[in-house]
Computed example of a mutant assay.
Amino acid sequence: MSQPISLRDAALADLAGIAARHPDTFRVLHPSRLRAAALGVGAIVLLIFGLWRLEFSPARLIDGFGQLIHFLGLMLPPDPGTWSRTLLIFRGLAETLAIAFLGTLGAAILAFPLGFLAARNTSVGRVVHFLSRRMLDSVRGIDALIWALIWVSVVGLGPFAGVLAILTSDIGTFGKLFSEAIEAADRKPVEGVTASGGGKLHGIRFGVLPAVLPVMAGHVLYMFESNTRSSTIIGIVGAGGIGLMLSEMIRTLEWGVVSFIVLLILLAVAAIDAVSGRLRAALAGRR
């Protein structure tokens, strides 16, 4: 009695026929594999060229780690200095948080209508959609530090320039995030509003807004956390906040005060991250 032939044995027996019927699958150098291999080789070559062009040196890296450990030793233990200096540090930290909060909130308010103009499904026309997108791309393409340098030259030193820098930089980011959230919103509620006799504005108000507002609020909370760090950096160029004091302490080699300021910044960012994370989770649970 002959043994039954399994599917695997049958496939192996007809391997030549399968290869003849599906030549692209059995091709050794498939075009997709060639493209993937070419991209991989190109990335490796670009990496090697970049390391060579930027004068990467393992010896310098090892020596740099040694210097880093030396500086970390100088920064311990953290020392706030005198009582008056401690008050100035906390005042600078509060100013940094205020810059981040006002800049983020102002950017979110201004970017809210721009997000609808930049979204395909809510824009008033192709020209407006195109111009809104390009404007947001242009604003977003300039880093907050560059905006800080510009606004310091325009309005002078101080936290006002920092708020304007954060606000200007975040308008482009918020506009893009808001428009993408609007475009990704479910169209069924809008269709339901339209079928009930509502116009386009009614569809946006009752069909799009309830779906995208929690997403937008989550973006705002995350950017507030991120801007707390950015506000520290832009303060170094004179845009207010604790960054200027941090830069001054580094320049005068007061490493104990530097570590104290860095520790305060880390604690503030961690606290904001915890609070905003809970708020984002609550907003996600309501959707």
Score class of each variant (00 low, 15 high):
Ser6Gly: 15
Asp9Ser: 14
Ala10Pro: 00
Asp14Ile: 01
Gly17Tyr: 08
Ala19Asp: 04
Arg27Asp: 11
Val28Ala: 13
Ala36Lys: 06
Ala36Tyr: 03
Gly40Ala: 09
Ala43His: 01
Ile48Met: 06
Ser57Trp: 04
Leu61Phe: 14
Leu68Gln: 11
Ile69Met: 11
Pro80Met: 08
Pro80His: 06
Leu87Asp: 09
Leu88Ala: 14
Gly92Leu: 06
Gly92Pro: 08
Thr96Leu: 07
Phe101Ala: 10
Leu105Phe: 15
Ala107Trp: 01
Pro113Val: 03
Gly115Leu: 01
Leu117Thr: 03
Arg120Cys: 00
Thr122Phe: 02
Val124His: 00
Gly125Val: 02
Arg126Ala: 04
Phe130Cys: 00
Leu131Glu: 00
Arg133Met: 05
Leu136Met: 14
Ser138Tyr: 07
Arg140Gln: 13
Trp147Tyr: 15
Trp147Val: 04
Ala148Lys: 04
Leu149Ser: 03
Ile150Gln: 01
Val154Ala: 15
Val155Asp: 05
Gly156Glu: 13
Leu157Phe: 14
Ala161Phe: 03
Leu167Trp: 09
Thr168Glu: 09
Thr168Val: 14
Thr168Ser: 15
Ser169Met: 14
Thr173Arg: 13
Glu183Lys: 11
Ala184Ile: 10
Glu191Trp: 06
Ala195Ile: 05
Ser196Gln: 06
Ser196Thr: 08
Gly198Pro: 06
Gly198Val: 08
Gly198Met: 08
His202Phe: 06
Gly207Trp: 02
Ala211Arg: 12
Pro214Leu: 07
Asn227Ser: 12
Arg229Val: 08
Ile236Ser: 11
Ile236Trp: 03
Gly238Cys: 10
Gly241Met: 07
Gly241Pro: 08
Gly241Asp: 09
Ile242Asn: 02
Leu244Asn: 11
Met245Cys: 09
Ile250Leu: 15
Arg251Cys: 04
Leu253Phe: 15
Leu253Thr: 15
Trp255Ile: 12
Val257Asp: 07
Val257Ile: 13
Val262Ala: 14
Leu263Thr: 14
Ile265Ala: 09
Val269Gln: 08
Val269Gly: 06
Ala270Leu: 15
Ala271Phe: 12
Ile272Cys: 07
Asp273Asn: 07
Val275Trp: 00
Ser276Gly: 03
Leu279Trp: 04
Ala281Asn: 04
Arg286Ile: 00
